[in-house]
């Protein structure tokens, strides 16, 4: 118990003193997750609109598949991405293995179903008459879709935050395709895993506190949006 308490105090010291290593790992985790979220949103928003506004055979099945993929294990995505970008894989020539870019690719795959599902679900809550009113007022199909998106903008931000939360807290992808290389591809979760194994508990706890703090901020943000 004393060890845990000492570790906690030392961790706080590392945070308040802006320890270079802690800040570097936290900063990298944040920008990797933020980049993954941005890319995923750029893909999922138009794709979600397309799926929602278009009628096509198998639409319901597709939505079910998307929802099933919410809980896909991160290690499975890590393995899949590894197979593609490893030297023997079809994209091996790009030299992406064990790089932040590889983690971003994996995280985009991980969070896209969540974002896509939440966007489709939010759009299906918009009254059909909103789109029709926009069309009747002379909007193009795209302009009318933007009106619907505006109507559920808070729900879409919620999807973004949920995606961010999932991305920053995952470990399987970062470990398999990121390689946990110090100063290059080490993230909060891989660092916690490594430092715990090394017995360097204060650093692991400091990073854990930062991760919990990020989760807390995300939750406060979600609650605030849900009240809108």
């Amino acid at each position: 118990m004393t060890e845990l308490w000492d570790g906690f105090l030392q961790a706080l010291q590392l945070i308040v003193s802006f320890d270079r290593e802690v800040m570097e790992i936290a900063g990298r985790s944040l920008w990797i997750a933020a980049t993954s979220c941005t890319i995923a949103m750029l893909i999922c928003l138009p794709l979600g609109c397309l799926i929602h506004f278009r009628s096509f055979p198998g639409k319901r099945l597709l939505i079910s598949v998307i929802q099933t993929l919410y809980s896909i294990p991160t290690v499975l995505i890590g393995l899949l991405v590894f197979l593609f970008i490893s030297n023997a894989g079809p994209l091996g020539g790009l030299g992406l293995l064990f790089s932040p870019a590889a983690i971003i690719i994996g995280q985009v795959i991980l969070i896209s179903p969540i974002m896509l599902g939440l966007i489709i679900s939010a759009l299906s809550g918009v009254d059909k008459m909103v789109t029709e009113t926009a069309l009747s007022l002379g909007a193009t199909r795209v302009q009318a879709a933007i009106v619907s998106v505006r109507e559920v903008r808070y729900a879409i931000v919620t999807a973004l935050i949920m995606g961010f939360g999932r991305a920053i807290s995952e470990i399987g992808i970062a470990l398999i395709v990121g390689g946990n290389i110090a100063g290059y591809s080490r993230t909060i979760t891989t660092a916690i895993s490594l430092e715990t194994q090394r017995g360097n508990l204060e650093l692991a706890i400091a990073l854990g506190i930062i991760l919990v703090f990020i989760a807390l901020v995300i939750n406060i943000g979600l609650h605030w949006l849900q009240r809108k």
Binding site: E132, A134, V147
Partner: peptide, 22 residues
């Protein structure tokens, strides 16, 4: 329409949207 739908914005924004789209 019989049952008017207003967009999630102020009155000005609602009335202006048709012009903005043009």
């Amino acid at each position: 329409q019989q049952k008017p739908i207003v967009f999630k914005m102020n009155v000005f924004g609602n009335v202006a949207c048709g012009l903005k789209w043009r």
